[in-house]
Simulated scan of single mutants.
Amino acid sequence: MTTEEKRIDEEKSSQLDRPEPIPGFPEFGHIPFEGLRNTRDLGGMPTADGRTIAPAKLLRSGALHKASEQDLARLVGDYDLAGVIDFRTQLERDKEPDPRELMEGVVFYDFPALSGETIGITHGAGVAQDLKTFASYNAGPHELVCGMYPQILLDEAGRVAYTSFLEVLLEGDGGAYLWHCTEGKDRAGLGAVIVERALGVPEAYVRADYLATNLFVRNRAEGIIDAISEKLRLARGLDADVDSLFYAYNDYYDRAMAAVSANYGSFDNYLTEALDFGPEKRQALRAKYLR
């Protein structure tokens, strides 16, 4: 990398929304795997009542198809993985299926958090096609993705997916559960928001965990930019378009929370009314996953 390229890289990195550190939760629970960039253990995250999330029980991730056999062996063995929740669409699962045959004894749950293909989030048709589709809209890619966050939480597909997800966690019998989408940012990220809020994690820490994706997906995003710009010779602005797909932003999070407040008044009400996860179920979840 030349000096100029390094300067540009550092400038771009400084422009990303960065998470504030969470006390007692180093590296945001990141697990260093060979093929998985954004897999994290929520264990150690503190809650408002002074407890912490139990380690090796709740894992968030991007899709598993790039995991090495050693990665999968660690997940199944070291974490006693009981279940995997996949928030992707059927098209995504068909294109890049989870390596179920290498994860013996793990139960897989398909809970698509979006109905059909949604621009800029699923990547079901490929990132290059997503960017071409963006070009047909007046709004920019960032605004389009931002506007989809309320859809994930409020539309029927998302409500059904996250309701089912919480019930799986509540019925768990001691093993770990991992949930994922494609990059582990949008649908899996909002899944983490839901679990953390149900467990009583302070909102500031929930936001920080959402933004922490930006610490771990950088090389993936830059590689995509290089590959498709070389192949398709796309116009200037490609960096910003791809950034919208791969990075977490405060305004994405804010738009989702504003939609919840506008429709339900509070996040607790959303859990109770939209996801059928009222105070009693939340207390049961805390008894199971906090220490």
Rank of each mutant, 00 (worst) to 15 (best):
M1S: 14
T2N: 15
E5S: 13
R7A: 15
R7D: 10
R7I: 15
E10H: 06
K12S: 08
K12H: 15
P19Q: 08
P19M: 08
G24P: 02
P26N: 02
G29S: 11
G29I: 14
E34D: 12
N38C: 03
G43C: 08
G44H: 08
M45L: 13
M45N: 02
P46N: 11
T47G: 11
G50I: 02
T52M: 03
I53M: 08
A56S: 12
L59M: 09
R60H: 09
S61Y: 09
G62L: 06
A63R: 14
H65I: 05
A67C: 12
S68C: 09
Q70F: 02
R74M: 12
L75C: 07
D78C: 05
D80A: 11
D80N: 15
I85Q: 02
D86N: 10
R88G: 07
Q90F: 10
Q90C: 00
L91Y: 06
E92Q: 12
R93M: 12
D98R: 06
D98P: 11
E101N: 11
V106N: 08
V106M: 06
D110Q: 09
D110E: 14
S115P: 01
T118M: 09
I119M: 12
I121K: 01
H123Q: 00
H123D: 09
A125N: 11
G126V: 07
G126Q: 04
A128F: 09
Q129G: 01
L131Y: 01
K132W: 10
K132C: 11
T133E: 15
T133K: 10
F134S: 01
N138H: 14
A139M: 11
A139F: 10
E143L: 09
E143I: 01
V145D: 06
M148W: 11
Y149D: 04
D155H: 02
A157T: 03
G158F: 10
G158H: 03
G158I: 05
S164V: 01
L170D: 12
G172R: 13
A176T: 01
Y177E: 00
G184E: 00
A192D: 01
A192Y: 06
I194Q: 03
V195L: 14
E196D: 03
V201N: 03
V201I: 10
A204Q: 14
R207W: 04
T213M: 11
R220P: 00
E222R: 13
I224S: 02
I225N: 03
E230I: 00
L234C: 05
A235C: 13
R236T: 15
G237E: 07
D239P: 05
A240K: 14
A240I: 10
D241V: 02
D243V: 06
S244Q: 11
N250R: 14
Y252G: 07
Y252R: 11
Y253N: 10
V260W: 06
N263M: 01
Y264L: 04
S266M: 03
Y270E: 03
Y270C: 01
E273R: 11
A274G: 04
A274P: 07
A274H: 05
D276K: 12
D276N: 14
D276F: 03
F277V: 01
G278Q: 04
P279S: 15
Q283A: 14
L285A: 13
R286F: 08
R286D: 13
R286Y: 03
A287P: 00
K288Y: 06
K288D: 07
Y289N: 10
L290F: 00
